[in-house]
């Protein structure tokens, strides 16, 4: 059984990492083609002077951070309100919250495109210029990000002891002070988890961006997609390798810190047991 488990894990990981290893190897490929002709590091240098790639990276980061920050603020506020609601109104709003998550992405993308096309016609009729670009991208990303924040914050609010807020207000806090002095500290892990989730989904998104992007600013995924129709520049491989290594390092660090904490807790527990034992 053990040997089977090991082999199975090995084969599975090989499957999971095969294309990633290929991508990393080809980031060092001399030629632009899909056959390996020789080793080079030049793509890692050229990457930073490629205006199209750098612009796409900038767009991706701006859209991700702006939309995640707005989504986190709006989502946290929404979760607090929802936590105090009951009945049909609450389940109606929750239904709208689940929709973008369970709907196929292409439906979300297409529905935004329809909205923005209609808005463009309508605003154009009023003489207001409106184009696909920053605004449409950011609106779309905020919309699919908010649900993740709400769903991360709501459970933390439910776990919170409601009398904490009452105590704060008895001691003279107003609503806002009760929030900044008490509530926010209780639900912080949920807010952070929601923010990070939103950031990841936003940076990784292709489908929704594809239907809401303008002619001028493309996100990285949209740029990569247009490249896959012809040939992906090895610069993109180089950029992805850099991102991959950074994420890997962050995860390893987090994991090591956690492992140390687990071990510490275990040691402490053992010690306590030993002390308890000496009493008996």
């Amino acid at each position: 059984m053990r040997a089977f488990a090991r082999t199975y894990l090995g084969v599975f990981m090989a499957f999971l990492y095969a294309p990633i290893i290929v991508l990393i190897v080809f980031s060092f490929n001399e030629s632009k083609g899909r056959t390996f002709t020789g080793f080079t590091g030049k793509w890692y240098v050229q990457l930073f002077s490629d205006a199209a790639v750098m612009d796409a990276l900038f767009t991706t980061l701006v859209v991700a951070f702006v939309s995640s920050i707005v989504a986190t603020i709006m989502g946290t506020a929404a979760a607090i309100g929802l936590n105090n609601m009951e009945g049909k109104l609450k389940s109606g709003i929750m239904g709208m919250t689940y929709l973008p998550i369970i709907n196929p992405e292409i439906i979300t993308g297409v529905s935004f495109m329809l909205l923005f096309v209609v808005a463009k016609d309508f605003l154009g009729g009023l003489g207001v210029p409106f184009q696909f670009g920053w605004a449409t991208l950011i609106i779309a990303h905020i919309t699919f990000n908010v649900p993740y924040v709400i769903l991360n914050v709501l459970p933390k609010l439910r776990q919170m002891d409601g009398s904490l807020v009452d105590a704060a207000m008895d001691l003279g806090c107003n609503h806002w002070q009760a929030f900044t002095k008490v509530v926010i500290h209780e639900i912080k892990p949920g807010i952070i988890a929601g923010f990070i989730m939103a950031l990841t989904f936003s940076m990784d998104d292709f489908v929704v961006s594809y239907f809401t992007t303008g002619a001028k600013h493309q996100t990285l995924s949209v740029l990569i997609y247009s490249m896959t129709k012809k040939r992906v520049s090895p610069e993109i491989n180089a950029l992805s390798t850099i991102i991959f290594v950074v994420v890997l390092l962050i995860l390893i660090t987090v994991n090591l810190v956690e492992r140390r904490n687990i071990n510490k807790a275990r040691k402490a527990q053992l010690e306590r047991k030993r002390e308890g034992g000496s009493f008996g």
Partner: peptide, 15 residues
């Protein structure tokens, strides 16, 4: 692997 753009991973499979 989900942190590497999925278009690129699919492109890797093409290769």
């Amino acid at each position: 692997p989900m942190w590497m753009n999925f278009l690129l991973r699919t492109y890797g499979w093409m290769t």
